[in-house]
Amino acid sequence: MTDTPPDRNALPYRDCVGLAVFNAHGNVFFGHRKSAGDPDQSAAHGSAWQMPQGGIDKGEDPLGAALRELHEETNMTSVSLLAEAPEWIYYDLPDDVLGKAWKGKYRGQRQRWFAFAFTGDESEIDVAEPAGGKHPAEFNAWRWEKLNRAPNLIVPFKRPAYEKVVEAFRDIPQRFTHV
């Protein structure tokens, strides 16, 4: 018996948020995903670097979800909202993950992206024990990168989505006086 892949068009998108967090130099935060617990198997598809992202809980507004996810993944709370992408940004899972990631319920993600300025000290960032150790670590390393490099750091199947993120927030790095 062979596994028949699900009908992609019959599956919905998972509602999520994505976060572009900029430091005082206009660079954006990237986390390196741990391979264990990687639902979309980013590491298996060529890169484990990504910006923070996560699901919107039932009844939760996207901005609230963004702040929650940021704390749960990075421990950051010292942020100031800079912008919101003008539209939802979508990506589809690759065929080999379809029907497996997120318990096979979704074809990909529909993301609402937010840009934040990080206003705290870097000692606040803790990807090993985020949310004060109350949330499992999703990243095992982090770094600051130029926003325009984002599409080349992400897994290929998310690249078109990250190109839209770069377009939505392209003016933000120039806002910082230390660039």
Rank of each mutant, 00 (worst) to 15 (best):
D61G: 05
T77A: 03
K134L: 14
E72S: 11
E145V: 15
E145K: 14
D92T: 10
I89G: 05
P62R: 04
R159F: 02
D61W: 10
Y106E: 10
P136D: 14
E122M: 09
Q111W: 03
K34T: 01
E138T: 11
V97I: 13
E60F: 11
R110K: 06
W144N: 12
R110A: 05
K105S: 13
S42M: 15
A115L: 11
T119S: 15
G54I: 11
N152S: 03
D40F: 14
D121V: 12
R107N: 10
K58W: 01
E87S: 12
A48L: 09
A43K: 02
G46Q: 02
A44I: 14
W144V: 08
L70P: 02
E124T: 10
P156G: 05
P86S: 04
Q109D: 10
R112T: 06
E138Q: 06
Q53H: 09
V79T: 09
P151M: 03
G99S: 12
W142L: 10
Q111V: 03
F118N: 00
L98H: 07
Q50P: 01
E122T: 11
A36C: 04
E129H: 05
A85F: 02
N140H: 14
A101N: 08
P151F: 00
F118C: 08
L70Y: 03
S42R: 12
Q109N: 13
D96A: 04
G99Y: 15
W49H: 03
G132P: 07
E129W: 10
A43M: 08
G59Y: 01
W113P: 05
P52K: 02
F114W: 00
P130C: 11
S47K: 03
A48V: 05
G104R: 15
I89D: 01
N140R: 11
R143C: 15
G132C: 07
